[in-house]
């Protein structure tokens, strides 16, 4: 059951975004984005050197940090202007996140990891289990009750992908999703993420410093390009 969103609104629409950490010197922004928009189904690779603020941008988009200036709209809603509780709810229902180290919940099975995402959604509880099982099966996980620690690294990432798309998100954020994988598996993993995003008609914003990732995305941008003429700090 997709989260009700503003019709025809871009999945992501960022305008005049500025952010700096409290210990950052005035005048230098950790993240500066003049404008960035992603339609539903669109897939973009964002690249930048290590420590340039790629992950920070994803955290800002997810509403986990507050920008100093600007507006971040996810599915038409200004996530950075929502009260904390609604912001958490909006994040859970419209955004899926995939991490470099998967961040699966220890002590919970693969199936429970996927169902954990649905806990905070509007999906009726009776549908959680069948939906999670179907999703895991679709992604090739044949032991849904296994502890993720007992699965291979590739399978763990599939569980993480399943969890990220469990609530039919509008926007999928992938933070260095292949950094923990060898090149062969990395290629398969990013293609899987792209395929799932396409199936769910979710926009995909993938950040990576891996040059090999460029071959998988038609639209590629750098953090510097997003900043326009805004001066960038030397490091994040």
């Amino acid at each position: 059951m997709p989260y009700p969103t503003t019709p025809d609104a871009p999945a992501l629409d960022i305008r005049s975004l500025r952010f700096r950490y409290p210990d950052q010197s005035a005048g230098a922004w950790t993240v500066a984005v003049d404008a960035l928009a992603l339609r539903r189904g669109e897939q973009v690779l964002l690249t930048a050197g290590s420590g340039r603020g790629k992950s920070t941008l994803l955290h800002l988009i997810a509403g986990l940090m507050d920008p100093a200036e600007g507006d971040i709209r996810v599915a038409g809603e200004s996530i950075n202007r929502l009260p904390p509780r609604q912001r958490d709810l909006h994040r859970g229902r419209t955004i899926g996140m995939i991490f470099q180290t998967f961040n699966l919940l220890h002590g919970f099975s693969a199936l429970e990891n996927v169902m954990a995402a649905m806990m905070f959604s509007a999906i009726p509880p009776r549908e959680h289990r069948p939906r999670a099982l179907a999703l895991l099966k679709h992604l090739g996980i044949d032991r849904p009750d296994a502890d993720p620690d007992r699965l291979s690294v590739g399978q763990q990432q599939r569980v993480a992908v399943a969890r990220a798309v469990a609530c039919d998100p509008v926007l999928l954020l992938a933070d260095e999703p292949t950094a923990s994988l060898d090149p062969e598996n990395a290629s398969g993993a990013i293609e899987l993420i792209r395929a799932v995003a396409r199936e769910k008609n979710a926009a995909l914003l993938c950040v990576s410093h891996d040059p090999a990732m460029k071959d998988h995305f038609e639209r590629r941008i750098t953090l510097e390009e997003l900043a326009g003429n805004t001066p960038q700090p030397a490091s994040a």
Binding site: L64, L89, R91, G92, R93, N103, L105, M119, F120
Partner: peptide, 16 residues
Amino acid sequence: RRQIAVLRVLGASRSR
């Protein structure tokens, strides 16, 4: 802390 952070990303509020 990591478990809590993951739950927050998944949509859990601070109060929850």
